[in-house]
Lab assay of single mutants.
Amino acid sequence: PEDLERKVRELQKNGVSPEQIEKILRRDGVDEREVQELVKKVS
């Protein structure tokens, strides 16, 4: 979803590592495939 992507970009802009971003997304209940997609987009 659009807002998730925005969140991921925000986190990355704040210097959060892709690994941390993955953890955060998983903790928020984002589905694994979605997590991978989002992280791939920003890394």
Rank of each mutant, 00 (worst) to 15 (best):
P1G: 12
P1M: 14
P1R: 14
P1S: 13
P1A: 12
P1T: 12
P1Y: 14
E2N: 13
E2C: 14
E2T: 14
E2R: 13
E2I: 13
E2W: 02
D3V: 09
D3E: 13
D3H: 10
D3N: 12
D3C: 13
D3I: 09
D3P: 07
D3R: 08
L4G: 01
L4D: 01
L4Y: 07
L4W: 11
L4S: 03
E5M: 13
E5W: 07
E5D: 07
E5H: 10
E5N: 07
R6W: 07
R6T: 10
R6F: 08
R6P: 02
R6G: 08
R6A: 12
R6N: 11
R6Q: 11
R6E: 11
R6H: 10
R6S: 11
R6L: 09
K7V: 09
V8G: 01
V8I: 12
V8R: 02
V8T: 02
V8E: 01
V8Y: 06
R9Y: 01
R9A: 09
R9V: 06
R9S: 06
R9P: 00
R9H: 07
R9T: 05
R9E: 05
R9W: 00
E10H: 08
E10N: 10
E10V: 07
E10C: 14
E10S: 06
E10T: 07
L11S: 01
L11W: 07
L11A: 02
L11V: 00
L11N: 01
L11Q: 01
L11R: 01
L11Y: 04
Q12G: 06
Q12I: 15
Q12M: 15
Q12N: 08
Q12A: 15
K13M: 11
K13Q: 12
K13I: 08
K13S: 10
K13E: 11
K13N: 10
N14C: 13
N14G: 09
N14P: 00
N14E: 10
N14W: 04
N14A: 14
G15Q: 04
G15W: 01
G15C: 10
G15R: 02
G15D: 03
V16M: 15
V16A: 13
V16K: 10
V16N: 09
V16W: 14
V16G: 03
V16P: 00
V16E: 05
S17D: 07
S17V: 04
S17Y: 03
S17R: 08
S17Q: 06
S17L: 07
P18K: 14
P18G: 06
P18L: 15
P18W: 15
P18V: 14
P18T: 13
P18R: 14
E19P: 04
E19M: 03
E19A: 11
E19Y: 00
Q20K: 06
Q20E: 15
Q20C: 14
Q20G: 09
Q20D: 15
Q20L: 08
I21S: 01
I21M: 05
I21Q: 00
I21A: 02
I21N: 00
I21F: 01
E22D: 04
E22T: 06
E22C: 12
E22M: 07
E22P: 00
E22L: 07
K23A: 14
K23L: 03
K23E: 15
K23Y: 00
K23F: 00
K23P: 03
I24A: 04
I24F: 00
I24S: 03
I24H: 04
I24Y: 00
I24K: 03
L25E: 02
L25I: 05
L25K: 02
L25T: 02
L25R: 02
R26T: 13
R26H: 08
R26G: 08
R27A: 15
R27E: 15
R27V: 10
R27S: 14
R27P: 03
R27C: 15
R27Q: 15
R27M: 13
R27F: 07
R27T: 13
R27D: 15
D28V: 09
D28F: 10
D28H: 13
D28A: 15
D28K: 09
D28I: 14
D28M: 15
G29K: 01
G29V: 02
G29F: 02
G29A: 02
G29P: 00
V30A: 08
V30H: 12
V30I: 12
V30P: 01
V30G: 03
D31E: 09
D31T: 11
D31K: 05
D31C: 07
D31G: 09
E32A: 09
E32H: 05
E32M: 08
E32W: 09
E32K: 04
E32S: 07
R33P: 05
R33Q: 10
R33W: 10
R33A: 13
R33C: 10
R33H: 10
R33M: 09
E34D: 12
E34A: 13
E34R: 14
E34L: 15
E34Q: 14
E34C: 14
V35C: 05
V35T: 05
V35W: 08
V35A: 12
V35S: 03
V35R: 02
V35Q: 01
V35N: 02
Q36I: 11
Q36C: 10
Q36W: 00
Q36M: 06
Q36P: 04
Q36S: 06
E37D: 13
E37T: 02
E37I: 06
E37Y: 01
E37L: 03
E37C: 07
E37H: 07
E37F: 01
E37N: 09
L38Q: 06
L38E: 03
L38K: 03
L38R: 04
V39N: 03
V39D: 03
V39K: 02
V39I: 15
V39R: 01
V39C: 07
V39Q: 04
V39F: 00
K40R: 08
K40I: 06
K40A: 13
K40H: 10
K41V: 09
K41Q: 11
K41G: 11
K41W: 03
K41M: 14
K41L: 15
K41N: 10
K41R: 10
V42P: 03
V42R: 02
V42M: 09
V42Y: 02
S43V: 13
S43F: 15
S43E: 11
S43Y: 08
S43K: 13
S43H: 12
S43T: 13
S43D: 09
